[in-house]
Design a protein around this nucleic acid. Structure first.
Lengths: 253, 253
DNA sequence: CGTAAGGTTGATCTGAGTCAAGGTTCGTGG
DNA sequence: CCACGAACCTTGACTCAGATCAACCTTACG
């Protein structure tokens, strides 16, 4: 499978992040150079729940999923990752990882150990801003996901998923319409909180309506217009604010 | 309504966080002392989507909710906040807030402006660790919430909600069994992604089964045992790990 | 080449949403 | 302090989106 990797001409914040790390950490010895880049294969784990937190990773190429497991053994996929994404932020909490991370295909990561993070945060304003921005952005995305899960129909969630994927691909310099899914139907269903049969049915339905063309794991978006109408409404941003609820009027003491 | 406020003998990470801020920022003038603490009343907004991000807040007393709004005008509550919680982290992303924050009752917040955060991150290792830990913890909670939303029945979600509330109260030195809800049924339903009628029905049902005693907004947990059995299984942690999937075996280059 | 994993499709069932009606509490102004 | 309207909450009846069960097809891999 052709994997995604971060193109050099990508100036998004994730790319900037990677640059900042690579250019600011003094790689005095070749040992560090060797260990800061690692390659993993499909189904391999980067970390698992309970592993000691040693630092974060930046995905350079390939794709991955993070998931949590209940005591009963059920898994729930919490996120899919693409090049430029930060992996392992969950480890800051208890100094050990709270999630599992597995790769979906052959992938490479850049390792940024805790001491390097601490150093960079002090010395580089850009790095600090980038790190906080990146984490904050991830949280904002999680909030949207929670909204989709709690307010949208299965069709809306799947439409949103495809459109989000398309955006992710486009941001990384790939086609926005020809997508190569790196996850199985089961994984999509699990992530979106629906039965695998439902994913299959909705995809077939989209196909019949001429919205997409799906064959195995390659998906072509034929009609963005209609797909967008299937997806839930976007979030309101400051642009669309008209009237506002009771404004801040603090009482100082 | 009797509001919750952070007790002085609470040595949790949130309390530590607040201490770190108060003790490390030189309050050279009385102006800052006055503006760093603010009191808000029920239904007042701390910030809204699109507001310029000027810093984060620490909730000292009371309670609050954050929510996002779709273009269509629908609201979705993303989180409830209690004393010690960090408010406004969403603003780091685009330098403007991505969510709205309203108070549920009279509350007070401590304001920590951007420049202070940047300064503290450089000078105090404790502050840096606390900030990252706090954000990371919030993300881990969001992940669980996503799992509950996508895999659990309404009854399970509501049971989990009550137990989580109970824990929040206990952590803040209040009774773990006598809860005073600061949010309406509508807000609970919205947060948990279900119809208001469903919340009402499940609460009545819990009452009939002798699990809780609900009257208006005061809720007493009568049977933790049974309530726990209603809630979804907890997450597996490193303690319960037995066998592990393919371990990390990086190929270095 | 055979078996397992992954994927599709149809039939049936049910949890929870929607609609409807009535009760309770709160807040404001007379 | 009471009254009236609005907001909040509860309960019942009906409906439907999507889960579950079942059978079958397709692709990947040792």
């Amino acid at each position: 499978m052709k994997s995604i990797s971060l193109p050099l001409n990508n100036h998004s914040s994730s790319r900037k992040f990677l640059d900042l790390c690579v250019n600011n950490i003094p790689e005095t010895n070749s040992y560090q150079a060797r260990t800061s880049h690692r390659i993993f294969h499909k189904k391999q784990a980067l970390y698992s729940v309970g592993d000691t937190f040693e630092g974060i990773f930046i995905l350079r190429s390939g794709s991955a999923k993070s998931f949590i497991t209940t005591i009963g053994g059920e898994e729930h996929i919490t996120k899919f990752f693409y090049p430029g994404d930060l992996l392992g932020i969950d480890g800051f909490d208890a100094h050990s990882h709270a999630q599992n991370l597995h790769f979906l295909e052959t992938s490479s990561v850049y390792f940024l150990k805790k001491s390097d993070i601490n150093g960079l945060v002090k010395t580089s304003d850009d790095f600090r801003d980038c790190l906080l921005q990146s984490i904050s952005h991830a949280m904002v995305c999680d909030m949207s996901m929670m909204m989709y899960l709690s307010m949208c129909s299965s069709e809306q969630r799947l439409a949103r998923f495809i459109l989000d994927l398309s955006m992710q691909f486009a941001e990384r310099g790939l086609s926005a319409k020809d997508l190569l899914l790196s996850m199985s139907r089961t994984e999509i269903a699990n992530y979106l909180g629906m039965a695998i049969e439902t994913v299959s049915r909705i995809l077939s339905n989209f196909q019949q309506r001429g919205i997409v063309d799906v064959k195995h794991r390659s998906l072509t978006i034929l009609n963005f217009e209609t797909l967008n109408r299937c997806a839930p409404n976007g979030l309101s941003s400051h642009v669309s604010r008209i009237e506002k609820s009771p404004k801040k009027e603090a009482v100082c003491h």
